[in-house]
Amino acid sequence: MKIELTSPIPGKIMKVLVGVGDAVNEDDEVMKIESMKMENPIYAPATGTIIAVCAKENNEVEVDDLLLVIEEAC
C-alpha cells in the first residue's frame, strides 16, 4: 500500500536524508524542516520502501504539501 507523507508544518526543507529506493522503518528520520527558526526532524509514517521524493532541499513547503511516498512493506 502506498503511504504519503505530507508536511506537518510550514517551513523550509533543510535536508532530505533518504532517496528513492531506500528502505525505511517507521519512525526513522527522513528529513529536516526548518520552521520558526527551529530544525524539526520529520519521521517516516510507515515501514517500507521510498518510491517517490517530492521534497527538494531549500524549497518552502506549506502544511499538507506532499513530501514523499512510501510503498508499505507487508
Binding site: P10, P41, V63
Partner: peptide, 26 residues
C-alpha cells in the same frame, strides 16, 4: 519566546514521533 514552544515540540515528539505540536505551541 520561542524557547518554550520548542520545549513543547520536543516533549510532544518524545511520546509520539508523528506529533508536530510546533505551530500550536508557537
Amino acid at each position: 519566546f520561542p524557547m518554550s514552544a520548542r520545549v513543547v515540540m520536543k516533549e510532544g515528539q518524545k511520546y509520539n514521533k508523528k506529533n508536530y505540536l510546533l505551530m500550536h505551541a508557537m
